[in-house]
Design a protein around this nucleic acid. Structure first.
Lengths: 165, 165
DNA sequence: TTGTTACCTAACAATCAGTGGTAATTATGG
DNA sequence: CCATAATTACCACTGATTGTTAGGTAACAA
């Protein structure tokens, strides 16, 4: 997405009013690589504008998505995640344990579908998701002080994964 | 997944009882390539066993997923879709308009992440999703002014929930 | 500066997919 | 046979997201 200043201009240019709350959301998203959910954006925004409502955050995220300034990702973490990086084509790594999403900036040029395999679909760009375990969750489950059950279940005990509820 | 008969044996072997309702779900899923939601499975099952409850369908789908006989897909259509095809590795085409999911049996052998790009993630198999418009929705939208704008503006605006009624 | 109008907040209801509980009944399989 | 799992109807609940209302504020064009 563009800078808060550019977004301000773009909002005005598209007939939207620019408010302190919206600019606050702009700033929260700027450079955020955590792929925050709406709730997470709300929490961060509240640190700047304490009274901003969840509704306004949803509204602004919706506007930004409509303008193509951010992308709304629905990749099985149970809620929509927002990605301010729409300039650079990329894919995603998703942690099965904690739901963390990381950008994967590798390009896969070989990802094209032979015409006869498309089944008549009109196709957009491919979205590649690698699911796995992030470094934090890897070390957490390998931590000897955590494994209280010797030879415990291979599922790593209680896996209350943030998969679709 | 295996045949209803094999699933019957497998359920017994794993301490599960085999009921008419469960076998009904087995039959519904057998050869189903529509990636049905739980509700859709329920609707189809009802045609065979009118009193089968949604709860039982969820329970059976959960069991089958646990056994690895079917796969639970969460690919942004608003609900979990179930895929009985777990034998053949494949990817998916998703219609942005109606939510239809089709198997894409193309293999992408070169789809691996360079070690330095994994960011410490422990990665599983890649999941590739191509979003677009299925043949039905392409012909249905008889918008004459729809000029092809390939690679055009990234106004990813069509981010509407394809949720059924 | 002023007036129109979009925007914001609070509070609450609703939706939708899915889970959980209960109690009563059914039926599987050792 | 019979213990026990499974099923059913019913209803409440979560969690993400949207909608509604009403009153107040603030943006921005004239």
């Amino acid at each position: 997405m563009q800078t808060p200043e550019e977004l301000t201009a773009r909002f005005r240019a598209t007939g939207r009013k620019v408010t302190a709350q919206r600019q606050c959301v702009f700033r929260v998203l700027q450079g955020d690589e955590s792929h925050p959910s709406a709730e997470a954006v709300h929490a961060a925004a509240r640190r700047q504008v304490e009274t901003i409502s969840l509704k306004t955050v949803y509204q602004t995220l919706h506007d930004l998505t409509e303008l193509g300034e951010i992308a709304a990702l629905d990749i099985g973490t149970g809620m929509v995640r927002f990605d301010p990086n729409v300039e650079e084509p990329h894919h995603h790594l998703v942690c099965r344990v904690c739901g963390k999403v990381s950008d994967l900036v590798v390009d896969f040029p070989e990802l094209s579908v032979p015409e006869r395999a498309t089944q008549g679909f009109e196709l957009g760009a491919p979205e590649v998701v690698f699911r796995g375990r992030c470094p934090e969750c890897r070390s957490r489950s390998t931590d000897p002080s955590v494994g209280s059950t010797p030879g415990g279940s291979p599922t790593g005990g209680e896996r209350d994964a943030p998969t679709s509820p």
